[in-house]
């Protein structure tokens, strides 16, 4: 039970930073943290029904749920792709504004047009 509460706390911290942190790069980091918390949630819950790896063999009836693991492989990779593209965009924006501050980017971006 405690572990789920801890995961919830991790999720809240990440989401809070994603919303309220002013630096774009911290927002991307926060997105990574939230993603990690969700992946951990899947894996930890999926292992609650067994205590053996997902291989065929004698321990078959005791193994953890292989489904969530296969899903999370995909989710992790998608998260990394999103991170890499957003970082590329941030580098592009830095070339113009020389700041990570979201408010400044907003203000100066509007002035341009």
């Amino acid at each position: 039970m405690i572990r789920y509460i801890l995961l919830g706390i991790l999720f809240i911290i990440g989401m809070y930073a994603l919303i309220f942190h002013r630096s774009v790069i911290k927002k991307v980091i926060a997105l990574g943290i939230v993603n990690t918390s969700v992946v951990l949630l899947f894996i930890i819950s999926g292992s609650s029904i067994g205590d053996a790896p997902a291989f065929t063999g004698e321990q078959g009836a005791r193994m953890v749920d292989p489904m969530v693991q296969a899903l999370m492989l995909t989710a992790i990779v998608i998260g990394v792709c999103i991170t890499s593209f957003s970082l590329a965009l941030i580098v592009h924006l830095w070339g113009r504004f020389e700041t990570f501050d979201i408010d400044t980017i907003e203000k100066r971006g509007d002035d341009e047009s």
Partner: peptide, 23 residues
């Protein structure tokens, strides 16, 4: 530049929404 800003905003807000989809 403005299209990059728009793209970044769309990316961040819809990624946040997709986290909820996963949950």
């Amino acid at each position: 530049v403005r299209s990059s800003v728009a793209s970044l905003y769309y990316l961040l807000s819809s990624s946040a929404a997709m986290i909820f989809f996963l949950l």
